[in-house]
Design a protein around this nucleic acid. Structure first.
Lengths: 142, 142
DNA sequence: GAATATAGTTAGCTATGCTAACTAATTTAC
DNA sequence: GTAAATTAGTTAGCATAGCTAACTATATTC
């Protein structure tokens, strides 16, 4: 197996297992990962329509419809009508939603960071560089 | 934000977005990601009991019980009794299961690899080293 | 004004995760 | 040598999250 295939394979496996670990932290916020991820788009990207949110999360509209319903039920987002087009929804994170997102993010990152502390400074630096490469790649994904 | 926190945050985000993309490839095999991941443990790690599989996949026994049922229904694994302890199941990948795993793995990896091809050889090598560090960290997770 | 296109929802399916409560088998304790 | 405790897995029941197909309501186009 050539180098590209080998890296691809192990990268996939590492990503799966990393997220399984982290998911347990997310659950402590009382909201699932799909909701937290959608909420994060709203908090950092501002108000969105349902279709925009679905596209940002790479999910179909009925799926996002349910995610948004859940967030609204927990008062983490607020839904208003678009004054220019009554078909559209304007979805905004509430202050409560923003607070919860930040809290969850802190918990998750603190947990991850506590594990990363085991690495040597050199390994951490290597990992940091690699994540940078990967993030850029994901931004320009084909 | 210090270096550890920053790496933790970006690593998490990259893992989420990477898997969202790859999930679509997995679906083409006709089996979900949890089943493929469990099957992979059997193919590369040999026969396992249900409890061992659950532990390897960081999932509770009832969850793994259903995953294994699904795999058995599709004839991707075979379940026999442990001759030494009738409470235990011995779960083995069938030849069909092994073939499907390799096929799915090829599709997924080919897709990932086609994206990784955009990296320079140097970047790829850095990413490979980092994945190695990460895999080891995940094995000895606290 | 009628046909078409677009935004979201609803209904209904599958898959994955959990806990609680169960059965069956083995081990331990007496 | 049997009763109690432990261990392996299953079943039932709940929630989240993904999908497609079919629907409603609004806008746009012809």
């Amino acid at each position: 197996m050539n180098a590209v295939l080998s890296v691809a394979d192990r990268l996939h496996s590492a990503a799966i297992h990393l997220l399984r670990r982290v998911r347990k932290q997310d659950i402590a916020t009382g909201e699932g990962p799909a909701r937290l991820s959608a909420l994060s788009v709203l908090v950092f990207g501002g108000p969105k329509t349902l279709k925009e949110l679905a596209a940002a999360e790479q999910v179909k509209p009925p799926t996002m419809s349910r995610i948004v319903s859940g967030l609204a039920r927990s008062r983490l987002v607020e839904i208003t009508e678009d004054p220019e087009d009554a078909r559209r929804l304007r979805i905004v994170a509430t202050p409560k939603g923003t607070r919860l997102l930040h809290k969850g993010r802190e918990m998750r990152i603190a947990y991850l960071a506590s594990q990363l502390e085991r690495l040597t400074p050199d390994e951490l630096s290597q990992l940091g560089d690699a994540v940078e490469i990967l993030s850029k790649l994901l931004q320009h994904w084909g």
